[in-house]
Write a protein that binds this DNA or RNA. Structure first.
Lengths: 222, 222
DNA sequence: GCTAGTTTTTATACATGTATAGAAACTTAG
DNA sequence: CTAAGTTTCTATACATGTATAAAAACTAGC
């Protein structure tokens, strides 16, 4: 029998940096100077290493960003008291995920990650799926319903923060504004009717209201 | 009075390439060789110009991709016969947008564009907003409801195609798979219950089903 | 025709992610 | 100790988007 308690060292050159070092330094750069300043060279320099050394601990920069988001979520997502009513519990849990992610500025580069759901967010997913099943959905429908909630949430965040970024970076009127300005009322009567209110209306944050509608629709017994 | 019909030339060096040239050549490269092959240098070479010359006709590469998506949508989105029932019309119009975008492989790099909605897609937006109002929503609620549909649609496409790309690029098991494999059933009973079915379930295409639920929920009179 | 002004194009340069090759630093077997 | 094997790190190189500065090609005013 082998002795697993022996001070067994792994062969090979000992690592001078760890994934944790990378995440920690990366977090510092991002929080202090913004995600734009996070480059592999800068990170390597701050860590006292070389750019390519990082690649032995993370697959690429996208994985690094996912890890940083994970780290951020773990530090930020504390489990709240959830309502007893399952329908309300679904809404509150989804909103909790939404709010944490929406507050994370570098989200867009990463949110396309299907498997983003970090361990810390799993508890919320559990609550949502559990709530859906408690409301009468079978497991299959509950998973599909959860996915719909996730699609809606991710889409809201991605579209909204990308739009905000674009507004900040460019003073020119958006393409959308130009299109709406030159709208032919005879061909697009409904859009022309709301054209001047479109921008303020889409700027309003109605995430929760529409989430409620989605949940209501998902729970309809048809 | 000035004579606008006179052959009035603009001052300055005459352009040798046009935005249309760029879009046309870009489309050819993308369709023939894929979006990965579309680089500013390659595009310039094919067009017989230099990379930086392109930047007088498009702001940056992202705008070029938006233009290409717009071009693609214009060529692809033909107005179908829509059902008379407004609720069904909403579903069919949204599905039409979804299907066209989902079939576009380079979508993810661009779909974060809030103002992506090209002129050719506006007709579908008109149908959706019109259908919502016909179902009794006032203009404000109709716009918000349309946005919810758009968030859901964009989120579905972004998350799904990004996941597909990641699977294609990497043979390793995803992070999500690892997390689900090591799930503690006592802490996450619902997730553990569906853990082995999660991957096939999320692979199913239930866009339309969940869209119907969303529309139903948005139209509930509460 | 010449000059000034305007627009487009070109040349050059830089920052960035990352592929590749090999050197360095360790463990283990003999 | 030496040799082989393994892992990590370093140096170099390349592709890419794009900033900057200057040259080129035109029109309009004189």
């Amino acid at each position: 029998m082998s002795q697993p308690s022996a001070p067994r060292k792994t062969p090979g050159r000992p690592a001078r940096i760890s994934r944790e070092d990378i995440i920690e330094t990366g977090r510092r750069i991002v929080t202090e100077e913004g995600v734009d300043r996070l480059t592999m060279r800068r990170l390597a320099k701050d860590i006292g290493s070389t750019p390519m050394a990082l690649y032995h601990h993370v697959r690429d920069k996208e994985e690094l960003l996912v890890l940083l988001l994970d780290d951020y979520a773990t530090r930020t997502m504390h489990r709240p008291e959830l309502p007893a009513d399952p329908r309300e519990r679904i809404v509150v849990a989804a909103s909790a995920i939404h709010d944490v992610l929406a507050a994370c500025p570098w989200i867009v580069e990463v949110l396309t990650a299907d498997d983003l759901m970090s361990t810390s967010a799993l508890w919320f997913v559990e609550q949502i799926v559990g709530g859906l099943m408690e409301c009468g959905l079978n497991p299959e429908r509950a998973v599909h319903a959860y996915r719909a909630i996730w699609y809606y949430t991710a889409g809201e965040i991605v579209v909204r923060t990308a739009a905000a970024r674009r507004r900040a970076a460019d003073e020119r009127p958006t393409y959308r504004e130009q299109v709406f300005a030159g709208l032919d009322p005879s061909e697009y009567p409904r859009l022309a009717q709301v054209a001047d209110r479109w921008a303020p209306l889409t700027a309003e944050d109605t995430y929760v209201v529409q989430l409620r509608a989605l949940v209501d629709g998902l729970l309809l017994t048809r």
